[in-house]
């Protein structure tokens, strides 16, 4: 007997089972009286699911390609440097042959922009497009907890790029013998890597999510994020470095502000990046640390405000 609907009356099944044919009569569905994880569990589920979604886990191969390309682009230089350090038996960092930890962000930047532009918008846009948003809002999640979960997932995914390669470098340099001297210095570098990586991820995640909330079209979101990251960099650099305007204009340069915060966390200034003081971005060193921190906090707050405003409107229309 085929029970394609699973709804056949049990008595009929028993009658047929008496005819001699073996039957599975257990629907298996049972009442549940075990633990429930509440709002925390709901947020963890969304964070985990969004993290895996962003990296393409459980999705067709075409969705895995771009995020993992970004991860590879961010990680390959680190692997090459570790290889060089292993082959050449000298202190390559002290000899300025290999980059220090904070200098590695120059190699990450392209991957970070690529990741933010192409991958991050999907994390919000998809839920609005495929009906998951109203599904989520009919669970213990509220709008704030949904958005907080999404933001945490984006920040965690970005941290794979901003923190992952540097942690790899730290561990590999340490094993190779070029790492920080002593446990104290090692911990300081670790905290700086985590702090700067999370700070950059938070700032860029907030801006990317805010732009992604403004449109249901992934392509528009991608263009918006790329314009914000690259366009603001180009315009502010021209205004400050070429037109020699007030360097506080860099406050509108999301990427440079993240970089500047990273430099302050590592306790270095832009001249360390290159001795040529006329190179673009050098006038950021004129900005106070307080200003840099405040601008980054403002970017996160502004992104969060746009996100909240936009989703309040979307929620009302559901």
């Amino acid at each position: 007997m085929s029970d394609t609907t699973g709804t056949t009356d049990l008595r009929e099944q028993v009658d047929e089972a008496d005819d001699g044919a073996a039957q599975i009569l257990d629907h298996r569905y049972r009442p549940y009286s075990g633990a429930r994880h509440g709002l925390g569990g709901a947020m963890r589920a969304v964070i985990g699911s969004s993290f895996r979604f962003t990296l393409g886990f459980g999705r067709p191969a075409r969705h895995k390609f771009l995020p993992w390309l970004a991860v590879v682009v961010a990680l390959v230089p680190a692997i090459v440097f570790v290889g060089i350090a292993t082959v050449l038996d000298i202190d390559l960092i002290s000899e300025n042959i290999l980059p220090e930890y904070h200098q590695y962000y120059g190699f990450i930047e392209a991957a970070l922009f690529f990741f933010c532009g192409i991958v991050v918008p999907e994390i919000l846009v998809a839920d609005r497009r495929n009906g998951m948003l109203p599904m989520y809002l009919a669970t213990p999640l509220r709008l704030w907890s949904y958005l907080a979960s999404k933001a945490a997932a984006v920040a965690a995914t970005l941290a794979v790029i901003t923190v992952g390669p540097l942690l790899f470098l730290l561990v590999a340099y340490t094993i190779e013998g070029s790492g920080p001297a002593g446990p104290g210095n090692w911990l300081i570098v670790l905290v700086r890597i985590l702090g700067s990586g999370i700070a950059i991820a938070a700032t860029i995640a907030a801006a990317s999510l805010a732009i992604s909330s403004l449109t249901d079209r992934r392509a528009f979101a991608v263009i918006g994020v790329i314009l914000l990251l690259l366009g603001s960099q180009l315009v502010t650099s021209v205004l400050v470095e070429v037109a020699e305007m007030d360097p506080r204009i860099y406050a509108f340069n999301l990427a440079e502000m993240g970089e500047a915060l990273k430099d302050r966390i590592f306790g270095v200034g832009p001249p360390m990046l290159g001795e040529d003081e006329s190179s673009p971005g050098q006038r950021i060193s004129e900005l106070s640390t307080l200003f840099v921190v405040a601008v980054n906090v403002a970017w996160v707050a502004a992104g969060g405000a746009v996100l909240w405003w936009r989703y309040r409107r979307i929620e009302a229309s559901q």
Binding site: G34, R36, H37, G41, A42, Y136, L141
Partner: peptide
Amino acid sequence: LSQVRGLP
């Protein structure tokens, strides 16, 4: 969605 509703 079951996880989001609190199930382990």
